[in-house]
Design a protein around this nucleic acid. Sequence first.
DNA 1: GGTAGACCTGGACGC
DNA 2: GCGTCCAGGTCTACC
Length: 292
Amino acid sequence: MQFKLYARQPFQFLSVVKSHGWVQLAPFTFDEQKVSLSYTDRLSNGRVLTYHISETTDGVAIETEKLTGSEQAEVAQHVTWMLGLDMDFSGFYAASLGEPKLLQAEKKAQGRVLRSPTLFEDVVKTILTTNTLWTATKRMNLKLINEYGPSSDGETDVRAFPNTAEIAASSPEVLKETVRVGYRAASIHELALRIESGNFNLESLKTSDLPTLDLRNELLKIKGVGPYAAANLLLILGRGDFIPLDTWALKLVSHEWYDGQPVTAKKVEKHFEKWAEFKGLAYLFWDWKYEG
DNA sequence: GGTAGACCTGGACGC
DNA sequence: GCGTCCAGGTCTACC
């Protein structure tokens, strides 16, 4: 079956899909030929299914197996969140006016970042990006899904991302041994346990109206989440105030303004200071000279 | 507030 | 095939 969702304009499907590396992390896959984003999801009734998302003239079309009315509503809710279909970036575009390096931002409808249906999945994926190479992040994420994620009926190679219960039921030692996440096992397991015990409502942060600084402090309380990870998660939560400052950011700034000479984190901050609440967005969608 | 060192994995490299 | 080095962000101890 197929159904469509409207996106607040301006909207460009590819700008969201290619906003950051998430599209390369299972259970996302992207078909370049068909320009179609696929995601294997688990609905609240336990059903595991894959849906395929493509662009329409004013939003997206979703193609999947036959769904009940409530299942369709849930998939629609998930896709709306994942692609930020209802998000408004007019403030960012207004602030970008006159900056040649952000000229393309409004034209390409940039601002949205691809996200997972649950914040838990995005926090775990973010922890998996820390202190490691991108290839290792992809491998750890895939192993986590293959070891702990539920499969759809009769297709053991199609799996959704594991939930908090599945990870909490394991142990840091087993996680470390089977998923090869190293010291990150303790952080991931502790987060799953905290949520499962009811002591921490992580998903409520998706709709929180806390000031960004307070929201950042909440994220920093999660073991394994430091300044870089918190900034990345804030961008996912639609708060563009902080720059995810990693070695890549230092490299970009070094080639942009310092002829490839080493730069400090303070210099990166200084160059984006003027963008205030849009600092992170300006950094993320800057038209960088250096491409790696 | 700033800094140094440990954490852990797998790829690259030299032998 | 083996050993060594390196990249990567967070945490903790220390000044």
